[in-house]
Write a protein that binds this DNA or RNA. Sequence first.
DNA 1: GAGTTTGAAACT
DNA 2: CAGTTTCAAACTC
Length: 754
Amino acid sequence: MDTPLKNQTTTPTTPLPSKYEDSPVFNYISNLSPIEPVKSRGNDHTFNSLTFASLPSIFTSPQNVSLGETRFSLRRHHSSEASNPESFQTPNPSDKLESVPVAVEQSYFGSKQSECFTPGSSGTEVTNAIPTENLELAIELSNTLKYSSGSPDRNVPCDATDTVLETAATPASLVQSVVHHSEERHSSFERETDLRRIRGMEREKEAAGVDWTRLISDASDLLNFDSTTIEEGSDGEDPKTVDPGAICFISNILQDNHDGMEVMESGPIDSSEQYELGKFSNQSEGIGDLKETDEAPAILSRNLLDKLNVDDKCPKCIHSSCKHSSQSYAISRRCLDFERAETHKRKSICDTSGSYSVPLQSNCEVTLVEKKLIRTTAGCDYSSSRLPGIGLHLNALATTSESNSSKVVNHETQASESQVTETPNSKISSTCLTPSEVSRDESCKSEVHIAETPPEACAPVGVESDHSSPENKRLKSKHVGESLACKRCNCKRSKCLKLYCDCFAAGLYCIEPCSCQECFNKPIYENIVVETRRLIESRNPLAFAPKVIGSINAAPQFGEETNSTPTSARHKRGCNCRKSGCLKKYCECFQGGAGCSILCRCIGCKNTFGRKDEAEESEIEEHKSRVWKKDATDVSLGRVKDQDLPMTLSGICRPSGQLTASFSGKPKIFSLHSVLSSPQPEKHLQVIPEEGTLEALDNSCSQPSGVKSTSPNSKRVSPPHGGSEFGSAAWRGGRKLVLRSIPPFPTLASPRKH
DNA sequence: GAGTTTGAAACT
DNA sequence: CAGTTTCAAACTC
């Protein structure tokens, strides 16, 4: 374009015939170039209109312009031309692209260069990298766009400058580079990483057959996120703080899903990534690259716009739509951090993201309101992916109910986003150990704080922002998911290192909203937390498992009439209520939206989700049938004695002590009864799979009580790894993983043989 | 917001 | 394993 550098860059590309330049595609590409914005008012306008307040600032950086453009020369050519925000809706595809894509691209690509290159170095870089790229570009127009995204590999210059940045995700830093914060580099890096992860996820999904729409939404979400951050920064809030946290949380979330970090970093951006980028451009283009459906462009643009709009409207995330993704982020972050602490940042075990299809995803339809769609999609993806890594509680929540989950997600989303804005100093130096500093240093973890910090953000839809007030708290916690999402404690003496602490029990770090005193449940005290967890898990491997198990999906929605259809969810140990009638949140069953079961020792149970007596009846019936069947089988094998049946029944009907706990309360779903009654543990495992839904099974398997009760030395019973293993497996892996790792269970149960 | 109630968690 | 104590959330006023 105007700048010499660009000319250079473009020139190499020129192997393309002049005709090519004349071609619509070429024009389109040219129009795409956003880097110019600084110079071109139009772009600025566009950004502003789009609410990319900070974008202009981005372009202020000379480096960004020159460097970024070099690679994107093709696209950004005539960026100046497309300045109209309205261009989105204009028939002209190129214009459409301009506003949105520009922002995106810059954030992605430009940042990289900006960081990698100093003004002086830029020239060298250009010469080196461009030729090859251009060549490829020439070959494939579509690729050209993608190319602009700039694979790490190709960006040789970056490597020289800063290997880490370069490999990691240089490009993302554009925005931050604009800000000129060295600290931001880190954040940008993470952002980039996040983006890549997302893309990688998308790739996977794509491979799986996921439609591009989701990808777009994700990407748009990402974009949105960025924009939000930027905007915030422009608003006067501390940009630094914002970015890091946001980035961190995203990265964390993604991390679970995707381990791909390494891969992505190590390797150049593969075609798929580029492809996605290309999608962006394509979509905005309207030219419609091959892969995309006609809808793609429109949707993309809409999404982007929506996002932008959303950001504008609610920097702090006012809309539920905004909340969604953020919330999920926040949740995951918090949990992930925790998890990470335990595992010491092990690579996500659960790339099983694929396997964990969250119900939410299903909800992600293009048909949804775009705003929601965007958020939702992102949230879905993240949530799904994150599930594995999340504390069991969270997992339970996720699975609990779609509606709930969505609420939760929204909730968190808001929180997270607002957090982003609020996050003050996110990480950068993790050396600080003082509790007060903890929140800051936690970097990624700090986000946790951030995410939930904003009362308003956190507040469930329809709930006042004031968290502190008991009323609000109550309202918030109305829904289990919500309560967890915004979980905050008020511990005074437990240091938040005991199960008394809801945060700790839920596998979450305490965050700002918490009113706890002398809190050690912070990322900074990771070691302590982990150690404590180990201790607790050693006593009760499933101490951190969700208290309520079973498919809450089936359970009536909160607030719905529950009596008619008892939920399948059951408290893992049952409650012991004496005065609350299991009608108040004192009752863990009730609180978790679970009906009371035979495991409960409650008195005067009136649990609307299912009373104990009812459960007992059904349980007995169920058990009887099972027992008889088994009995027949066992008898044939000579294993079962006449006594067994009665004993089992008695145990079921009125389990005593921990033994009771061993039974899952869920008759229809779980076959634990059979386990107890059955002399052979192995059978249990076999039986379980048959009956239950996976979740139910997993949950049942994961129940600590079960372990304890079945084993002679309940306390001794510990997971393979001194208790932590099992628990951790459940902790990090999610239900399915837990289920797999359960094998030890049978062994434990075996002692019960009579 | 303070105080009470409640039941889980922790302890003995 | 049972009883007691501790604890913090839930709840009430």
